[in-house]
Design a protein around this nucleic acid. Structure first.
Lengths: 128, 128
DNA sequence: GACAGTAGGTACCTACAGGAAAGTGAGCCT
DNA sequence: AGGCTCACTTTCCTGTAGGTACCTACTGTC
C-alpha cells in the first residue's frame, strides 16, 4: 500500500474507487471470471457463457478490458474469422481479489437475513 | 419471471456477481470506505467528505446499506436531529477485501500505461 | 420574524447505458 | 447461387439512475 502523494481526488474520498471503476464496472466481473476460471475463450463462447449479455455490450467491455491491459485479444485472419480472448498477467493478478470475494459470499445469507429483518421491522412501527 | 430453475443463475456465469452487486454498487465504495477508515459519521459529514454525491443519492445508498446490514443507523431524537452512521460487524468483515483492493492500486499506472499503448497502437495501423 | 442548521422527502427532468434487430464481409459447403 | 458461420458494427429506442430544486419540522439566535 504505497501512500500516494498529496490528496488524491478529494471528491472520491476513497483511494480504491479507481480500482473499482476498472475491475468492477458493469459486466466486467463475469467476463474476467470466465477468462480466469476457464481459460481462453472465443467471442461466441463468452456470449454463450454469459447468456444475458448482448454482442454489442460484450464487444464494448472486451475492448475496454483489452485497453486496460486486463485481457489479451488475438485475431486469427482465417476464413471464418477467429478471435481469442485470454486473461493477461495483470488480469491474473486479480485472482486473490476474486478469491476473497468468493470467500465473502458465505455472508450472502447474512445479508438476505438482514434484508428480511429490515423489511419486517419497517412494516410494523413507524420509521423515525 | 419467477422461474424456479435448477441451476443457480446460468446467466451470471460467475458466483461473485451477487457480492459485487451488494458491495460495489454505485457510491457504496466511498461510503463504506469512509465509515470503515474514519469511524462514525453524521449525514452531513459524509456529504462533505464525498463532495460529489447529492443528498438524495446519499440517502438512497445509506438506506440500501442499512438494509443489507452493512451499516448501522442511529437516530437521536434531539432538537436539531442527529443521525449517526457506523459500519456494522458484517461491514467490517469487508476490510481485508478493501485492503486487497488498495494493494492492487499499485497497478493503476500499469493500467494507465496499457491505455496509452493501446491508444498509440490504435492510431497508426488499421485495426484488424 | 427571519434565518440557519439537521436529516432528509418529493417532484420533475435529463443523459446515457444498455437492449433489439438487422447488416457486413469473406469464404467454404452443397 | 443461396446459406452458413464468425465477429462484430450500426441504428434506433427505452429505462432508469442520478441531478436540480424545493419542501418539511423543530428550535435557538439575531
Amino acid at each position: 500500500m504505497t501512500e500516494t502523494t498529496a490528496e488524491v481526488a478529494p471528491e472520491l474520498a476513497c483511494p480504491i474507487a479507481p480500482v473499482v471503476d476498472i475491475v468492477f464496472s458493469r459486466w466486467t466481473t463475469p467476463i474476467l471470471w470466465s477468462l480466469n476460471e476457464y481459460g481462453r475463450h472465443r467471442f461466441v463462447e463468452l456470449e454463450r457463457r454469459i447468456t444475458t449479455i448482448t454482442p454489442k455490450v460484450l464487444t464494448q467491455r472486451l475492448r475496454q478490458l483489452e485497453r486496460d491491459g486486463l485481457v489479451v485479444r488475438t485475431y486469427h485472419p482465417e476464413v471464418p474469422p477467429r478471435v481469442e480472448y485470454e486473461i493477461s498477467a495483470l488480469g491474473r493478478s486479480l485472482a486473490p481479489l476474486f478469491a476473497a470475494l468468493a470467500e465473502w459470499s458465505v455472508n450472502l445469507d447474512v445479508v438476505e437475513q438482514a434484508r428480511q429483518d429490515y423489511d419486517a421491522r419497517d412494516r410494523a412501527p413507524h420509521r423515525t
